[in-house]
Design a protein around this nucleic acid. Sequence first.
DNA 1: GATTTTGCTTGATATATATCATGAAAGTTT
DNA 2: AAACTTTCATGATATATATCAAGCAAAATC
Lengths: 191, 191
Amino acid sequence: MFEELKKSIEQHVSLSDKEWEVCKNKFRPKRMLKRQFLLQEGDVCRDLTFVEKGALYSYTVDSKGNQHVIRFAFEGWWMANLQSFFTGNPTTLNIEVLEDSELLVLDRDNHEKLLQEISAYETYHRIILQNAYTALQQRAENALGLTAEEKYKRLLEQNPEFLNRVPLNLVASYLGVSPETLSRVRGSFNR
Amino acid sequence: MFEELKKSIEQHVSLSDKEWEVCKNKFRPKRMLKRQFLLQEGDVCRDLTFVEKGALYSYTVDSKGNQHVIRFAFEGWWMANLQSFFTGNPTTLNIEVLEDSELLVLDRDNHEKLLQEISAYETYHRIILQNAYTALQQRAENALGLTAEEKYKRLLEQNPEFLNRVPLNLVASYLGVSPETLSRVRGSFNR
DNA sequence: GATTTTGCTTGATATATATCATGAAAGTTT
DNA sequence: AAACTTTCATGATATATATCAAGCAAAATC
């Protein structure tokens, strides 16, 4: 149940067995089924969520009712609305379960405790944040000034796994193009 | 010379006078003139840069030679390519001076020392990262699925100061629209 | 003070992409 | 197995935006 988390942490820092025990016990396992909501617009984001198994995605709904996918999270990825988590303000984000999932959730108290008690955890958290930031920057760059075809090509290079696990209409929303356009781009691209 | 930095830190955490002295001495002041490069594609980003006075902007150049503005930084803002700074890999980013500037630069060694020596600095750094992350997320959301007019409106709401201090062709690049389109949107909007 | 450059606007045209509409295949539920 | 839903593809049309082109005022440079 904690394999992915351990793997993720050890990729970046080293923990003693004892520290790992302390760490692990702060998380609460949670199973969720496809289509369930981990977070809904208007809620406060109380937890950082780590995906042990399965897949999640986050999205906003704009004033015209259009859905905009913000990101996906698979095994070994974190998901949360950081702004809401850290400020306690209600979120504008929805987080929904894409595949039946096993999650590990960490509430703010326990997160703060870990930051204080285990300095390697603090380092790990910082690295994760930095990586999330650079990934998001990459994404913002890709969203701007690229044609639909270029966006698709970049996705193939940078996140090909999305195309296997995520319905194309969600991928289209993630790229900021219509499902029809994505379908056509793929069609012409595969020939 | 250190007023803005002090203000920025004290907005988020409190430092003793002694800690502030330690902190302050790790930074190196640097003056730069308009059009100078703080960082060029292919370089490694060696410093975190804090803007005491003036303005910077970062951008990438794509394979067709088009410039894409990533972000701006004014007084009280940080600027760096985090990926390059933390990994030591060469950057694909250019950082250029938009207005004659007074900067405070912090190299990686000194940054690491501060993280270790002053726990409040670590907290400050984390909060800054979190804020940068949420701002970037907001930006990615705005870049996707909004019309040119909506992007302009959001900019007016969220960063009206950009429009006073930044040439419109750079704002257009930042928004991912052509300068002509931005000009037209502004024209019709002001009537 | 003259000349060049920069920043911005406006018009005409081209083009990428959204939208609307339909259908078919694959997956779910009853 | 039948009925329904989801997912994806494709065609026709509409539209937002890019591109090309010209011009002008203010600022910068000589």
